[in-house]
Design a protein around this nucleic acid. Structure first.
Lengths: 354, 354
DNA sequence: AAATTAAATGTGTGCGCACACATTTTAAAA
DNA sequence: TTTTAAAATGTGTGCGCACACATTTAATTT
């Protein structure tokens, strides 16, 4: 038997007050005399009290409702992954009185985002997880959330002005640099490198351009002037989409393509396969079913994993930590820029936690 | 307010017995009549009861002692990382009455391993985390542990006959394949590829040869006969060590080197730097301080991260889950084969969980 | 049938905390 | 000074579970 951890009761005894008073000081609920406050804080300074989070949760037997606001998973396999992460977190925390309500909006419709966000507001949840992919529409929503003092966690897309409880995502600039590095690696011949932003909507152009910035600056820093970098913003729904890609392939000095979106990666890979262009290096995003197929067949060379599933599940966990355990959460949680190859992709599929 | 989770009390009411009886059934402590047992199990089958793990820990207010058996962290930065993971887990769980005792042995001395393992046995801990790097010496130790019914978790090195609570580590064969892939990538010229096993002791030769097997089979599967693969087992303490490496570099068809150990990676990188050989691709293991330096300067091209820190901390967590929460743990927890590059290495340093 | 023992079942307490509520102390008003 | 209100402090209960212990019931023995 070793020295047990210090309890509230111990602090109370040391300070010569009751547990109630200590409790009031700890949670600054007021109704404490200056003298009592002084005595308790003095003890607290000497002893480093770590509340038993397990007992805390049990003691305050509350039920929390968390709202998750994200694009409809049916529209995009990327968001389907995010949704999976939320479902996973949901079942994990269900037994502790945490319920997660899904609020889905149309990926291609800004007004749908606004409308659904308002529904979240009206539902008055205890915490919110949000993927704010529409910058301008999101700003007033955050104002709303702040008014009601509901803590909110951002994931996937960061918005500087949001001031959330925490942001979970990746460093997009650095992500672009990694993409550049992977395209550049072992390329000895000079030539052209293309950056493709393939999206049905231009909503997160800022988002994508951040990656491109990193991509370009990588080469600037390397001082490699023997590569010409070109970029395109393409809409796969556009009738001229295929033509545009074909035109790109006309350039037979084309060495590699960096696609900034997960969906675009599969589209480009499919196109390259049909054209029989196996010598052009392709770097894209995320371990989606389709991407994995092309990775294994060698069309895609590298994927950068954004880990949407874990981003979402960790977002819920952060809210739970904040609400239930009253634990501090990191302001920003930047995920590693995981490089996925043909040979290591399977090792990423197994365990969910990593 | 939603439907709360089912409690033991609820099951008792449904089965028409007392909570004590349900408790006895749940933990099969015996002293239950066949009829009562039947009634309870019937209810249990209909209702899927999930015990409140939080209340469980609080209820059985036990203190657990966990022993961690691993090489002395002072001998090797790799094991220093493992040790860090243990320290981290230690502080995380300390407030819940979990204490972790370190048992360190000499990395180069098998008898030291045996002796220290015996000390662990005599200490009679409630759980054991062990890095069984000496195969033959470890086998009888496991026998001992099994006799006393102390649960033990293996990390770093897997031993098929060990039958542990769980193993935490990586698929070494696949790791070798990833190494091969990274060496092969973008190599158009035929030439020689070297596999280097650099270790002061040959203890985990099996361990290392598994990586080499994966490495070789990668090329066999690709049908690439334009690469000659050679391998060396080297001891950095050997006076002829430098000579042997120099001889290797004589071969100017040498395209790349795959080093199977983390320490060996730094040693090789240092050698290549001194020789001014920047055109030879180098793939090694782990984000150690020294390796990072060579990665950033471009001597090392890729590192495969074994994540010793997380392996160790997760090992402790698994034991805690087993002992304290009575949760099931996965029999094997294979970590992803993380590919570390110049551009993504920093993203791995920040957050500890990932 | 009463006494003894064993098996089965039920009850009560505490883990550390949060929070409602009771009680005491102090200050302000009558 | 007594009454009333407000502020400060203390006490008690429950969260869900594990586990020790008390009680009841059944099976043996005397």
């Amino acid at each position: 038997m070793v020295d047990k951890n210090i309890r509230i009761k111990d602090i109370a005894k040391l300070a010569g007050v009751s547990v109630g008073t200590v409790d009031r000081v700890l949670h600054n609920r007021g109704r404490v005399s200056p003298e009592a406050l002084k005595k308790v804080t003095e003890v607290m300074e000497q002893i480093d009290y770590k509340p038993n989070l397990i007992a805390r949760t049990l003691g305050s037997n509350k039920n929390y409702r968390i709202a998750a606001l994200l694009p409809d998973p049916k529209q995009d396999p990327y968001w389907a992954q995010s949704n999976l992460g939320i479902t996973q977190a949901q079942t994990e925390w269900a037994q502790y009185g945490i319920q997660v309500e899904l609020f889905l909006f149309d990926l291609l419709d800004k007004s749908s985002f606004q409308k659904t966000a308002h529904q979240v507001y009206l539902a008055k949840p205890d915490g919110i997880l949000i993927a704010p992919i529409f910058y301008h529409e999101a700003l007033p929503i955050f104002e709303l959330f702040r008014e009601t003092d509901i803590p909110y966690v951002l994931f996937n897309t960061n918005i500087a002005e949001a001031a959330p409880l925490s942001f979970i995502g990746q460093n997009l600039y650095q992500s672009g640099r990694v993409g550049a590095e992977l395209l550049h690696f072992g390329q000895h011949e000079p030539g052209t490198l293309a950056v493709l932003h393939i999206d049905e909507d231009i909503h997160d152009s800022v988002h994508l351009l951040e990656k491109e910035k990193g991509f370009r600056e990588y080469f600037q820093d390397k001082g490699k002037i023997n590569f010409t970098i070109i970029d395109f913003i393409l809409n796969p729904k556009d009738p001229s989409f295929n033509n545009q890609l074909e035109q790109l392939l006309q350039d037979n000095s084309l060495r590699g393509i960096f696609v900034s979106t997960s969906k675009g990666t599969a589209v480009t890979a499919s196109f390259l396969e049909k054209q029989g262009k196996r010598d052009i290096r392709l770097v894209g995003y995320d371990i989606l079913e389709e991407n994995m197929k092309y990775l294994k067949s060698g069309i895609i060379d590298f994927l950068i994993n954004q880990n949407p599933k874990r981003q979402a599940s960790l977002g819920i966990s952060h809210l739970v930590n904040h609400l239930m355990f009253k634990k501090g959460t990191p302001g920003t949680d930047l995920f590693p820029l995981e490089v996925i190859t043909q040979q290591n992709v399977d090792s990423y599929l197994g365990s969910g936690i990593h």
